[in-house]
């Protein structure tokens, strides 16, 4: 799969996930090793209106989606990958009004499990607001709906 196919597929994937569509989650970049998703620092995403801070749970949504996408893209052929567990460390508060970026990558690909990590930043990537670790289960080709890969990435059959 080329990076162009990955980018197109991932953008399509975002529109197929109702919650990501409502948040207007964007795909910034995709490569062989990692990807970047982003969200606006919208007023709807505030968790503390007095201090104008973004809700920690919104960061979890971004992390889960980014790590899950990285897991799917790391497989020989896209499979459905439900989250087994996810851990978020909140390094500092995220401010409303500034865009949120999340970079995610696979740290280890096992037969049944995909291990991932990601980090979220606003102005500087080396100054993250949160760090996340997610573990995903591979459902395998037999439990992935037929045409899943084809539908998303325009690929089919063996990769």
């Amino acid at each position: 799969m080329t990076n162009e196919q990955r980018l197109t597929g991932l953008k399509r994937f975002m529109t197929l996930i109702p919650h990501c569509k409502m948040l207007n989650m964007q795909v910034e970049a995709v490569s062989e090793t990692d990807l970047v998703l982003s969200l606006e620092g919208d007023q709807r995403f505030v968790g503390n209106a007095r201090d104008q801070l973004i809700h920690g749970g919104l960061l979890t949504v971004l992390m889960d989606t980014a790590c899950g996408s990285a897991a799917i893209l790391a497989l020989p052929e896209p499979e459905v990958c439900p989250t087994v567990d996810l851990r978020m460390d909140h390094y500092r508060a995220a401010s409303a009004g500034q865009r949120l970026f999340c970079r995610a990558r696979v740290t280890h690909l096992a037969r049944q499990i995909v291990f991932t990590e990601g980090w979220i930043w606003q102005q500087q990537e080396d100054h993250p607001v949160a760090k996340g670790t997610g573990t995903f289960m591979r459902l395998g080709p037999e439990r992935t709906p037929k045409g899943f890969a084809q539908h998303l990435f325009g690929t089919g059959g063996a990769a």
């Binding site: 197929l16 996930i17 109702p18 919650h19 990501c20 409502m22 809700h55 920690g56 749970g57 919104l58 979890t60 949504v61 971004l62 992390m63 889960d64 989606t65 899950g68 459905v80 439900p82 989250t83 996810l86 978020m88 709906p145």
Partner: peptide, 21 residues
């Protein structure tokens, strides 16, 4: 609008996390 997997359908895992947080 909280759905993450429209095939089942199932809630987005991140939304469940945000709810629990």
């Amino acid at each position: 609008s909280n759905v993450g997997n429209p095939l089942l359908p199932a809630l987005h895992g991140g939304v469940v996390a945000a709810f629990m947080e």
